[in-house]
Nucleic acid binder design. Structure first.
Length: 788
DNA sequence: GAGCACTGC
């Protein structure tokens, strides 16, 4: 205590200690010289007390004295806008179960709020810990790293993170950053999230599928656990919706710290946004002061095209208008990491000393909207489009569609220009269009997705009444119905929509339900090892590369792996070859394969293998030289994908079974010979309808493996149906015949058995008679003898 | 004869 009193730097620590003593009901806590936390009473701290604890001589979490680095960071933390609101925040959290917090970029909410909650709830004393969720893995990881530094602890000890494939926590952990999907998984085995005293949901405005489910779950849990606190953090001004959803929760608004961005609209609508974007970029280069440019486009092809045009025309204006040199960099997620690094390179130097400055132009997809931040961007060009996922429940297909962005997304894009200094945003649409045509918010993902996997998870979470599920935006009944239907056909739900043992097993796997069903069914066919590999390969982005300049070479490389049964077996070949290569990265390069995808497939396979072992699913392989080796694998695939079958009609077109959609085999398929029956993994909707990743099957397998689905009476008419009907009829006849034969044989057996028994009896009786007679005669002879 | 916006368990 004396130390603190003598230290002018800790002026208000003194008061805090006294207050703490008062809360402790007068009990002496003078050993509090070592831990400033002694002054804190769980659930009743003040901002002053918290600040005092942060300025104490020793770290309340570790008992160690604070490092100089800690003190330096602390000074900066005090400057964050959110720190000015600490007392307000504490007041709200003390008096409410839910708090909604809106904080713009740079407010410090993600790093500071969880720390305030830790100091307030003192998880190390209370035994329950605090979680803060993020939609993305990298964010969870990097924020945890930062907060560990801020609290002067080692990452993975008192502060940790938990993401797929990486658990970086310990028994000491009091604050855990995790992806929202990870927390959802955890809830599946601990429905009340009983380990936690507070959950902080960050980036809630992004409305990812998992965040939406988690919000609903927290609402449910909070109504049953009065002790848990929930903080929902968001970046939008659409806070009323969040407040209302969380039972009229109070709102705290924290200003951000960004620079102003001037917005420019086009006076007239642009017909060709690509052309217009390029023109605008070159015009900025020719007329605006130094500063890098970010252009938002929709996809890889468009971006590469734009880069080509920019390079060509850039050279022209550099010559004619005496502009500085340009560095043009594409950016999209499937770009190899070393190419992605280029976005962080500096703009080129002027060609001559004192000449016009160079400029960097980044041409990017949505990655640059949320996931990646590029420093030095001053100008943003926003054509107003992005590719968005849409789900059509009628044909059960998710597809990507180029669509206008929302006003919220447009604001987000503009904001990217003001991170380091005041910037400008050029919108390639009219102001009128912005106000009238763009929707306010992007539709939440839950309204645009296939919910098969999510519905299963909800069932596992103990939520049975899905129709009345309390979601911020309720999903369409038809989408829900499709999900239930799928799970029912897979055998995951019974007739009353309750989870079956198979459903429990499927839900353990962090993959599509069909893939999980495939793995579980593989036990029956003795090929779980191979099916685990295929499932992993199907869960990662396409492994086959096909660079524009080397298409033929790439196709030839792929042909080396081709398997005549189809694309699934081809993937299996690739995986096996990958595993046996000595230098995987070089090997991938040589074979036109995406190393990143294969590495990830290997990771996923290992995870799936662990889940399988945990659920007593044996790891089996058939004898490779057996002729049944591949057919058995294909049967296991069919057990998962019997709802995605296409039949080649006599006119040479494939028709999907039951939905009767005309589809083409994707040109990337190895199945050039067009087998009559195929299962497919994916339905791709572009200019035409394609089925991608297909494997040949036998129609009789469908009736054998999925008899409940192939109840042909409710199928619409088509050739495939007629063939299946014939097979079913033949099966029925064969079965009848077999049964008739069986009955006949049984009868015969019975008769002959009876006959035999009869004869035996006769024989026995005869023998007995004979014996008796003999005995009698013997006896008589004996008696005669004796009489003599 | 063609694509894979972006996350995530």
């Amino acid at each position: 205590m004396a130390d603190i009193k003598n230290n002018p730097y800790l002026a208000h620590m003194h008061d805090a200690m006294d207050e703490g003593a008062a809360y402790n009901n007068g009990s002496t806590s003078t050993k509090g010289t070592n831990s400033a936390f002694d002054a804190l009473v769980p659930g009743k701290t003040t901002a002053a007390q918290q600040e005092a604890a942060e300025e104490a001589l020793h770290n309340g979490l570790t008992g160690r004295s604070f490092s100089q680095k800690y003190k330096d960071i602390l000074a900066k933390r005090r400057e964050l806008p959110v720190n000015k609101q600490r007392q307000n925040f504490l007041d709200l959290i003390h008096n409410n179960q839910f708090v909604v917090l809106v904080g713009e970029t740079g407010s410090g909410k993600t790093t500071q709020i969880p720390q305030y909650v830790v100091l307030d709830m003192l998880p190390q004393i209370e035994g329950k810990i605090i979680a803060c969720t993020q939609p993305r893995r990298v964010a969870a990881m990097s924020v945890a790293q930062r907060v560990a530094e801020e609290l002067d602890v080692k990452l993975g000890q008192e502060v940790g993170y938990s993401i797929r494939f990486e658990e970086c926590t310990s028994s000491k952990t009091v604050l855990k950053y995790c992806t929202d999907g990870m927390l959802l998984r955890e809830a599946m085995s601990d429905n009340m999230l009983s380990r936690y005293s507070a959950i902080i949901l960050d980036e809630a405005h992004e409305r990812t599928l998992n965040t939406d489910i988690l919000m609903s779950l927290m609402k449910n849990i909070a109504s049953k656990r009065r002790d848990i606190k929930v903080v929902v953090m968001s970046a939008t001004l659409d806070s009323e919706k969040f407040q209302k959803y969380f039972n009229d929760a109070p709102l705290l608004t924290v200003p951000g710290r960004t620079f102003p961005v001037e917005i420019y609209y086009t006076p007239e609508p642009e017909r060709d946004y690509l052309e217009s974007a390029i023109k605008t970029a070159l015009q900025i280069h020719a007329t605006e002061p130094e500063g890098d440019i970010l252009i938002f486009l929709t996809g890889e092809e468009e971006i590469e095209e734009a880069c080509r045009l920019l390079r060509a025309r850039g050279d022209d204006i550099i010559r004619s208008a005496n502009c500085g040199p340009l560095l043009i960099v594409p950016l999209y997620s499937t770009l190899p990491p070393n190419m992605q690094q280029k976005i962080f390179e500096k703009a080129p130097e002027p060609r001559t000393k004192g000449g016009a400055p160079g400029r960097k132009i980044v041409v990017s997809t949505n990655v640059a909207e949320t996931s990646l931040t590029i420093d030095g961007i001053v100008y943003v060009i926003d054509p107003g489009f992005s590719k968005q996922k849409v789900y059509n429940p009628r044909v059960r297909v998710e597809s990507l569609l180029v669509s206008p962005i929302s006003r919220a997304a447009a604001q987000q894009r503009a904001g990217r220009a003001g991170r380091t200094r005041p910037g400008k945003c050029f919108r390639l649409y009219t102001e009128k269009s912005y106000n009238n045509d763009l929707i306010e918010q992007t539709y939440p993902e839950i309204l645009r997705s296939n919910l098969g996997s999510i519905v299963l998870q909800l069932k596992k979470l103990g939520i049975n009444d899905l129709v009345h599920l309390d979601l911020m935006d309720p999903c369409a009944p038809e989408v829900l119905m499709r999900a239930l239907e799928l799970l029912h056909y897979l055998g995951a739900l019974d007739d009353d929509a309750n989870l079956t043992p198979i459903g429990h097993a499927i839900s353990e796997f962090p993959i599509d339900p069909q893939l999980a069903k495939m793995i579980i069914s593989a036990v029956e066919y003795g090929c779980t090892n191979e099916v685990l590999s295929i499932a992993a390969m199907l869960s990662v982005p396409n492994v086959f590369l096909r660079p524009r300049e080397a298409q033929r070479a790439a196709d030839m490389a792929k042909a080396e792996f081709a398997h005549m049964d189809g694309d699934h077996m081809t993937l299996l070949n690739v995986y096996h070859s990958y595993k046996s290569s000595s230098e995987p990265s070089q090997w991938c390069w040589d074979n036109f394969l995406q190393y990143r995808s294969l590495k990830s497939a290997d990771n996923i396979r290992e995870q799936l293998r662990r889940v399988a072992v945990k659920n007593n699913i044996p790891l089996l392989s058939n004898n490779f030289s057996s002729p049944e080796y591949y057919p058995k694998i294909r049967k296991a695939l069919t057990a998962g994908y019997f709802m995605q079958v296409a039949h080649l009609e006599r006119n040479g077109q494939y028709l999907t079974v039951k939905d009767n959609q005309i589809v083409l085999l994707h040109p990337s398929s190895v199945l050039e010979r067009k087998p009559e029956w195929v299962i497919y993994n994916e339905f791709v909707l572009t200019k035409r309808h394609y089925i991608r990743t297909a494997t040949e099957i036998k129609p009789e397998w469908l009736l054998e493996i999925a008899a409940h689905y192939y109840e042909l009476s409710n199928f619409p008419p088509c050739e495939g149906k007629r063939i299946l009907e014939k097979i079913a009829l033949r099966n029925a006849i064969v079965q009848d015949e077999q049964e008739r034969k069986k009955r006949k044989k049984e009868k015969k057996d019975k008769e002959s058995k009876e006959g035999k028994e009869g004869k035996d009896k006769e024989k026995k009786e005869k023998k007995e008679k004979k014996d008796k007679k003999e005995r009698k005669e013997k006896k008589e002879r004996k008696e005669k003898k004796e009489k003599k």
